[in-house]
């Protein structure tokens, strides 16, 4: 791996995607300010630990995994296990309480998949890499999440 090239790729990734990183990670850390710090630190870690990127997956997915570990650590929580998915939640649930309630009911992995899809705008392959599941499993995971959300929203919104 050409380290100069990887540094340049990381910078390019940062410049293109740091907004998405912040938005997504704020749902883990609880604030945009702390999410920004997490993004800064995650990319710094990636720069330092370039040997950790083996090149057999996407660079972005690798940085996401670093970022989630940093985000969880920044909250003082325990270290994430390899296959563990962090908790995510909306920052301001009052802006769409029905969606927030529906999302809260999702199992943790489905919830994360939905956030990665809509907040991080990741492809199925990247979601699979971040979650540590096969790409073929992402589609059914998202489908189940969609069905559950759709049912909950329809029911709640009809009742409302």
């Amino acid at each position: 791996m050409n380290m100069g090239g990887l540094e340049s790729d990381l910078e390019d990734l940062y410049r293109r995607r740091q907004d998405a990183f912040q938005v997504m990670l704020a749902s883990v850390t609880g604030s945009v300010e702390s999410a920004r710090d997490v993004v800064q630190e995650a990319f710094a870690q990636a720069l330092r630990d370039q040997n950790g990127f083996r090149g057999d997956g996407s660079l972005e997915a690798w940085v996401w995994r670093i970022a989630f570990r940093v985000a969880v650590r920044s909250k003082g929580s325990h270290e994430l296990a390899v296959d563990e998915v962090p908790e995510v939640a909306f920052l301001d649930e009052s802006r769409d309480p029905m969606l927030a309630a529906a999302v809260r009911e999702l199992p943790r992995q489905r919830r994360m998949a939905i956030f990665l899809r809509y907040f991080a705008d990741l492809s199925y392959a990247e979601i699979g890499e971040v979650l540590g599941i096969a790409e073929g499993t992402v589609s059914p995971t998202l489908s189940k999440a969609h069905r559950q959300l759709s049912a909950a929203l329809t029911s709640n919104e009809v009742m409302a």
């Binding site: 912040q22 999410a35 800064q40 990319f43 720069l47 802006r95 907040f119």
Partner: peptide
Amino acid sequence: FAALAPEPLAGNWADVVARA
């Protein structure tokens, strides 16, 4: 989801490099 997304703050690549 987009309506619930927080407004991101400005980034700073130099800060990343400095931290590294």
